[in-house]
Amino acid sequence: MNWPILALAITAAQVLLGLAMGCAVYRVFRGPRAQDRVLGLDALYLSGMLLLLTYGIQTGRTLFFEAALVIALLGFAGTVALAKFLMRGEVIE
């Protein structure tokens, strides 16, 4: 069976996650300091990953989950590198 309520719920969840990404983008642009921007970026990739998961549920394709896994790993490495950069001004010492 195909339940319209479920389709509606998933779409609503996608809208909410999109709003969450909007909040994160606001923080990235607004700042005021560099660490706030990195924090916003961290929240942004996380919401993006969750959005991909909901697309995976909606379409039933595995592809989205692989993409989410890649985003989770790359986001981690990216934020760690940025935090390290903020600490000393250099990524590799």
Partner: peptide, 20 residues
Amino acid sequence: VGIFVLLGASITLIGALGLI
């Protein structure tokens, strides 16, 4: 599925609202 997807999305949105 519907309840949990909505719940997870709302919690994430609340977290992001905290950023603002």
